[in-house]
Design a protein around this nucleic acid. Structure first.
Lengths: 155, 155
DNA sequence: GCTCAAAATTTTAGGCTTGAAATATATTCA
DNA sequence: TGAATATATTTCAAGCCTAAAATTTTGAGC
């Protein structure tokens, strides 16, 4: 038999399951909100926003493989999202000198401008959705989150 | 100008954004792990598991609309997932007496049995993935999560 | 009863996501 | 050099997901 919670007497595994279900529900709630606002305000999506955010942090561009690794999504997934960002004129594919396999992906000036606008609004949305989380809690919260990934994820 | 963190001097909105990004990354990490294990071990998926979990808690069955509401996903989404669970023989659709519009959805005995097996393993996976989260942190953690949804979500 | 709005569900079109297979290029090393 | 292996990316099939439209049935008010 595994360890039990000294307070409630419930097995730790049940406590952790409960924590996971709460975390999932909260994340889903915030994501649903953001998705809808992104759609209504910018006729865009969260995955597109995530990709643009990554590209905005590295203006010289990223390889497709770097993008999918950083975003923790599959290779083929990124291909489709970039296709649509290219269609909208927010992103360009640039061939890499000396390696014909690779493709560098970069924000266009139009993409940079649009992202700045979206990012500012996105930050306000998060601030509003999380206005119940107070400053003194945030660092503890983030610590606890990082504990979960520690020893498991190596990035 | 908005409130600032008295310690770091950063605006609260930046702190909350940072928290959200950590939360998203952690949730994605755990979900990716669970998805892969569910696929390899049971040739199944997380959405299917979530639906079965909900039905297991209410053995007399749930309406399609109740299911989608509880799971915070769209109506049409649930239709497809149930279609496949019915094909696999884990779920049945039962017509509701007195209302020809509604459909009640129930686990079959085979579904109940299968879910019990999957749920036990699922709990072990969570326990393993979260083994860094200690007991005394869990309640605080859950509190903080609930704070996020408080005042926003009404369920 | 009739009409019309509301409710429960499914269908549809389009985007996201995965794992696996396919394609093309680069590298290693015998 | 040439063969085998590794790397970067795309394509593919299938499932997930959404919003909006369509379908069917119910219920309310007249």
């Amino acid at each position: 038999m595994s360890a039990t919670d000294p307070v409630t007497g419930h097995p730790m595994s049940k406590q952790r399951l409960r924590l996971w279900l709460h975390m999932l529900k909260t994340a889903r709630f915030v994501e649903n909100e953001l998705r809808e606002r992104m759609r209504i305000t910018y006729q865009s999506t969260l995955p597109r926003f995530d990709v643009m955010a990554m590209l905005d942090r590295t203006r010289e561009g990223l390889l497709m493989s770097q993008l999918s690794q950083q975003l923790m999504v599959s290779n083929g997934n990124v291909t489709g999202i970039i296709d649509r960002l290219v269609q909208d004129g927010y992103v360009v594919r640039v061939s890499v000198k000396g390696d014909k396999r690779a493709t560098l992906v970069r924000l266009t000036p139009k993409g940079i401008e649009k992202f700045a606008e979206m990012a500012a609004e996105h930050e306000r949305w998060i601030d509003e959705l999380m206005d119940n989380v107070q400053d003194q809690d945030i660092e503890h919260f983030i610590d606890a989150l990082n504990h979960i990934r520690k020893d498991h994820q190596h990035d």
